[in-house]
């Protein structure tokens, strides 16, 4: 089976026809000056709103004063980092951030794959379309509305507690108990994004030629066997790239939701590094300290990305770079 899979038609790369313009590069640039004008606003945008802020990270090593600017402010080296590592919140923040990211990935990565594989096996095309339309929908709900729904459903007299009481249970104060923050965060995320995340896998599955399935049926393969030996190998490269990408954004994602879900009583479980940066940096205007914390977060993020890309390349041969 293994050797057969390698030569299946959908794995072959399509040859690309390159348009070769035979002229010196100088002439090429002059000929296409309009294309550079097309690009110009976007280049300016990236420089101003992405590259200048990258340069602005320097303030993490300074005592930034708005009147002095990035050049005039005094340098302090790693003082802000040391202060952050020694602060009483450091371990709690790190633990919350990593735990939330880890569980999000643990459930959020495999679930869309399972849903896509199951949807792909539905025989009734109309019903399949209908299910798809329904499960994509929550993706378009805004964070504010999603968190608002969590608040009303999980309030002491909300839908969930009414349900618990029907079965004779006692109402649970979900939003004011720290231990419920992470489960609610993860499960509401799954509710919102699973269907949408399945689309990409469905596209990959649609690319499998029907002949392969027919041949497998000829050989007496059951549906489970076809999922195992045809479908899963077909979506493996997509899955690997998505895994690497989602690890690459692990430390950044969901920060708005975490901020909105925080209440004074659950904040001990809900405070993550990005929300902390926002509070310290913008609410109490400690720009340099917050920039240092943000940089620390970015560095952890990069280490994770690098590690998972390496692992993905070793395991399956396909990585991001």
């Amino acid at each position: 089976m293994e050797t057969k899979v390698k030569t299946l038609p959908w794995r072959k790369a399509k040859p690309k026809s390159e348009l070769k313009v035979k002229s010196s590069s100088k002439k090429k640039i002059w000929q296409n000056y309009e294309l550079y004008l097309f690009l110009l606003p976007t280049i300016i945008y990236f420089i101003i709103f992405h590259y200048i802020p990258m340069y602005g990270i320097l303030i993490a090593f300074q005592d930034y004063m708005p009147t002095q600017g990035v050049w005039g402010s005094p340098w302090v080296g790693f003082e802000h980092f040391i202060r952050f590592f020694n602060s009483y919140q450091f371990w709690n923040l790190l633990e919350n951030t990593l735990e939330l990211s880890f569980f999000q990935l643990l459930f959020g990565f495999p679930l869309p794959i399972i849903v896509a594989l199951l949807l792909n096996q539905l025989r009734n095309q109309k019903y399949k379309k209908f299910v798809q339309t329904v499960i994509y929908a929550p993706h378009f709900i805004s964070v504010v509305v999603l968190v608002g729904m969590v608040y009303v459903f999980f309030s002491p007299n909300g839908l969930i507690n009414n349900f618990i009481m029907i079965f004779g249970g006692d109402p649970v104060y979900f939003m004011s108990e720290a231990s419920w923050f992470k489960p609610l965060y993860i499960s509401s995320g799954l509710w919102q994004e699973t269907g949408w995340a399945a689309i990409i896998y469905l596209a990959a599955l649609a690319g499998v030629s029907p002949e392969v399935h027919e041949a497998a049926i000829m050989d007496g393969a059951s549906k489970m066997q076809r999922i195992r030996h045809v479908d899963i190998p077909a979506i493996m490269p997509t899955a690997m790239i998505l895994l690497v990408l989602s690890v690459g954004n692990l430390m950044n994602i969901g920060f708005e939701k975490a901020y909105l879900m925080q209440t004074p009583l659950n904040v001990s479980a809900g405070e993550i590094i990005p929300t902390y940066v926002y509070k310290v940096g913008l609410q109490s205007a400690q720009y340099s300290f917050a920039a240092a914390v943000g940089l620390f977060n970015a560095i952890i993020n990069f280490i994770l990305l690098w590690a998972v890309n390496r692992a993905a390349k070793k395991l399956s041969g396909s990585g991001l770079w």
Binding site: F46, I48, F49, H50, Y51, I52, P53, M54, Y55, G56, I57, I59, P66, G248, P274, V277, Y278, G281, L282, Y287, A290, A291, G294, L295, N297, A298, F302, L305
Partner: peptide, 15 residues
């Protein structure tokens, strides 16, 4: 490049 590296919240806000 900017998909993976960014200045972060504070430097962007300052800009």
């Amino acid at each position: 490049f900017t998909m993976f590296f960014s200045g972060g919240l504070i430097p962007t806000y300052l800009v």
